[in-house]
Design a protein around this nucleic acid. Structure first.
Length: 666
DNA sequence: AATCGTAGTGTTTTT
DNA sequence: CACTACGATT
């Protein structure tokens, strides 16, 4: 029987701390939510609770999630609880939220609202151009490294004029030099990079108080998920948005912080109470997801971290089966074992199963084995769909339709497919643009009228310019898929791909798939599409509900759960990854990564490692991961061959196991 | 300007 | 192994 009071009805299914988190009235609420403790539920119920109280309107709530997919799911769940008014709650990622804010207010900063978003690839091309024209060697100063420094600065809210690192290393020196130039180039291209989306949002709030006040007045409740993975600038943005009377509820788990390398500051959550003195702290420690044994194993791994908030996750679930460990000869045997095990465990219900690995390169052996067993699978991530050359080419065309000033995109397509506009011609166009102080696109328009340019250049220029202009006119109101078809026809793109042999075949498939994904018509729909594409993540593309095994990296696995989980490659150097062994803090993050993977499992957790593995070209002898060693052996059931016990005298070839890492199985 | 071949290099995780 | 950069050739 359901209660007539919807609020009571809502709260009945929650445990006491969950209920407390949902109903708390404090201005600052910090929820430590262990893995599988129902935090998404708490967040959605809290939103529902606020709305049902009748004192809060949907527009007054902002919920920030980590991925677009999570945002979409939360939106669905809120709507399921409340009906259509749930649609009006603002649920979004940091990046999407900032994008929306900037689209309507960035003009206050003297930037146009119809900017495009540059991804890492675009950033690199842009930086490459700057370095080249400044005569800086790309080998001595890789664009990537410089960009990393700049991004680091942006993530901490440091602008181009304030960037003066104290312990200048050569890269930082170059970064300091090029940061302003880079920003200028972005501005000229009417583009913002990922970092800018956050940095400019913060800048906007700082410089233009009336915009900040508008949001502060409007937003009475802000909720943030995965707070352990926020960086400084995101923390600042939350503070900007939070008005004096608004309440902030953050949810997170320091044990699941796995994005420190990307600038996330777990201190944001750990020192939250210091930032907001009257914070109400709630701990969700009951796990509803996993068996006791899975939890015990995961805890054994993570509790060895020194830098963590003490907590005790427990479950009322069954003890469950032992963890399974398989010691393979090499990665192929490992993959065969996984496939065989899935055929058995999955019993045709493949969607129950997932395989996690540290790096994408590991997926290959698994794919081959699964294919051989006839087991359907989906690969999350890897070479991202929108990162593929052919797709990026088409996206570049579409971008130029919207924003001809986008120089990186224009340069990308100027000679794709090849139409005789090589580096020399581009150079000439560039000088022309420089002389006239106009954009490359305008220079292209004018090229045909210039007597001082060679015949060939004028002709080619005229052809491309008129093609692009024609398409641009069509972009105004044509359905997007038709527009894209016109691009393909107008450029003979398919013929170009066809000439690339068998590889071109798959590319053509991709292009066709891309065409199928285009919806709507007109320039506004196009803009919206481009925004979406820019902020898409691997996991956003992941479609659950299909009956397939899921293959993904441990990072992508965050936030998901599966009945049966396989974690492969539990070896020193792979997990923990060899590049992160020296720094103890990074080492702890590897440990958390392992913990995140393990806690995704509901019923069964199968672990594996190999004694030999060919990776990066060569074959390497491998030693089992120290994380395996931390799991009490009473809960491990070794399958197949008995594990080769690892004598402490084994020192890994590359010296990754130092002598003080006493390494012994008994 | 385009294309093909070779040599050399460096391999994470992603908004 | 896969990718790129660069150089020689068409």
């Amino acid at each position: 029987m359901t209660d007539l009071d919807p609020v009571k009805d809502l709260l009945r299914s929650l445990n006491p701390p969950q209920r407390e988190a949902v109903t708390a009235q404090e201005k600052a609420i910090l929820v430590f939510a262990g893995a599988g403790s129902g935090k998404t539920r708490v967040l959605t119920y809290r939103i529902a609770f606020l709305l049902l109280s009748g004192k809060v309107a949907p527009e007054e709530i902002l919920a920030v999630t980590f991925t677009n997919k999570a945002a979409g799911e939360m939106n669905e769940r809120v709507c399921a609880l409340l009906g259509p008014q749930g649609q009006r709650v603002w649920i979004s990622t940091f990046h999407s939220a900032c994008l929306r804010i900037l689209r309507s207010h960035i003009h206050h900063l003297g930037l146009p609202g119809d900017f495009v978003i540059y991804d890492g690839d675009d950033q690199q091309r842009l930086m490459e151009g700057l370095l080249k024209s400044a005569g800086v060697g790309l080998h001595a100063y890789p664009p990537k490294t410089i960009l990393k420094e700049i991004e680091r600065a942006k993530n901490r809210g440091i602008g181009p004029d304030e960037y003066h690192p104290e312990d200048f290393n050569p890269y930082q020196k170059k970064a300091a030099e090029f940061y302003p130039l880079y920003q200028e180039a972005l501005r000229a291209a009417k583009a913002l990079d990922f970092g800018d989306l956050l940095y400019f949002a913060h800048l906007l709030f700082q410089r233009v108080p009336q915009v900040r006040d508008y949001y502060q007045r409007r937003l009475r409740h802000i909720l943030v998920d995965e707070y352990q993975d926020t960086n400084s600038i995101q923390h600042l943005i939350i503070k900007d948005l939070l008005g004096p009377d608004a309440s902030l509820c953050i949810v997170g788990d320091d044990d699941q912080s796995i994005y420190r390398w990307r600038g996330a500051e777990p201190t944001n959550i750990l020192s939250f109470e210091r930032d907001f003195p009257m914070t109400k702290v709630i701990k969700l420690e009951q796990n509803y997801r996993s068996t006791q044994i899975i939890l015990q194993g995961a805890n054994a791994v993570v509790c060895r971290n020194r830098w963590r908030k003490e907590k005790s996750l427990w479950t009322a679930n069954e003890p469950g089966d032992s963890l399974t460990l398989f010691w393979a000869e090499d990665e192929e045997e490992e993959a065969r074992w996984v496939a065989g095990r899935i055929a058995e465990e999955g019993r045709g219900k493949y969607r129950r199963c997932a395989v996690f690995y540290r790096i994408n390169a590991q997926s290959r052996a698994l794919e081959e084995a699964l294919m051989r067993w006839g087991i359907p699978y989906t690969l999350v991530g890897g070479v991202r769909f929108y990162q593929r050359k052919e797709i990026k080419d088409l996206v570049a065309y579409l971008r130029v339709m919207v924003n001809p000033d986008d120089e990186v995109s224009l340069k990308r397509i100027l000679n794709v497919p090849p139409r005789g506009i090589g580096p020399k011609t581009v150079e000439k166009l560039h000088t022309l643009a420089h002389q006239k102080g106009c954009s490359l696109y305008q220079a292209l328009q004018e090229a045909s009228a210039r007597e001082d340019l060679p015949q060939a250049v004028r002709k080619k220029g005229r052809e491309v310019a008129s093609l692009l202009e024609r398409l641009r006119a069509q972009a105004r109101d044509l359905p997007l898929n038709e527009l894209a078809s016109h691009i393909i026809e107008g450029t003979n793109y398919m013929e170009y791909l066809m000439a690339q042999g068998p590889e071109g075949q798959t590319r053509m498939e991709n292009v066709k798939e891309f065409l199928g994904m285009l919806r709507g018509s007109g320039i506004e729909a196009l803009k919206e599409f481009l925004d979406q594409v820019a902020l898409l993540t691997d996991i956003d593309e992941y479609e659950d509900g299909v009956n397939r095994v899921s293959l993904m990296t441990l990072h992508s696995a965050k936030g998901l759960e599966f009945q049966v989980v396989f974690m492969v490659g539990l070896e020193e150097g792979l997990l923990p990854y060899y590049l992160r062994l020296d720094d103890p803090e990074e080492m702890e993050e590897e440990r958390r990564l392992c913990y995140v993977g393990m806690t995704r499992a509901q019923e069964r957790l199968c672990l594996s490692c190999a004694t030999r593995r060919s990776l990066f070209g060569g074959q390497q002898r491998r030693v089992p991961s120290r994380f395996l060693r931390d799991i009490p052996k009473e809960i491990i059931n070794q399958e197949g061959r008995r594990a080769p016990l690892v004598p402490s005298s084994w020192v890994w070839e590359e010296g990754l196991l130092s002598e003080d890492t006493h390494y012994e199985y008994d």
